[in-house]
Amino acid sequence: MALITCQNLCLGYDGREILHDLSFEVNSGDYLCIVGENGSGKSTLMRTILGLQRPLAGQILTGDGLRVSEIGYLPQQTPVQKDFPASVREVVLSGFEGKCGWRPFYTKAEKQQAEENIRAMGIEALSRRCYRELSGGQQQRVLLARALCATSKLLFLDEPVSGLDPRVTAEMYELIEKLNKEQSITIIMISHDIAAALRYASHILHIGDRVFFGTNAAYQESGIGTVFMKGGDVL
């Protein structure tokens, strides 16, 4: 059975539909990119799969014994209170909380893993700084490190490279590919970077006026993305 199966999903807010009758599945080891225009419902879809909001209709099934505590998530926006006192290290470590269950403290291994993820994101110099005093791109990297802590099977990324400088963006894509290839972590990523999506993804889900789901190669053949891709150079 697939890791995640979405059947006839209808999504929306307050009964107003923004996505109708969407079906697709994600298998273990897939690298799925979700593309589409602003406001087409990508983030809404991700939040629904994560159980943060309910679909208007349809169902989401999980398989392969997937547990919520094996899922990592990078939200598009994190509405953190303006004066929240939290150090980078505390924020990154909190990614392990889902794995803790009733255990009150983090293990040594978890703390080490957190340090590693902080290093992988190149923010070790910031690790004692206050989260809300960082720049947007720096905050994004902190949240990525947190998402890595939470992940052991499946990683949801909502525009992971937005706000990152070109060097870190490239590193980011490499890191995600490594997670996917070496640790066989399944990736579901929302992106406006269509070139990167076509380069790395195994599957593409295109939502909007026309909906497409299939392998990367099939997407390029179908031509649905072409209009999007031509304009996509600037995205």
């Binding site: 939040r47 994560l50 159980g51 943060l52 547990r67 919520v68 505590s69 094996e70 899922i71 990592g72 998530y73 939200p75 994190t78 953190v80 929240f84 939290a86 505390e90 924020v91 470590l93 909190s94 990614g95 909380e97 889902g98 794995k99 803790c100 009150p104 403290f105 983090y106 947190r146 939470a150 949801f156």
Partner: peptide, 19 residues
């Protein structure tokens, strides 16, 4: 303590990752 932090800092991340 750590759970209070997680829930206070970012409730939807916490919920999405199994807290």
């Amino acid at each position: 303590y750590h759970k209070v932090f997680a829930v206070t800092f970012d409730e939807s991340f916490a919920a999405a990752t199994g807290v």
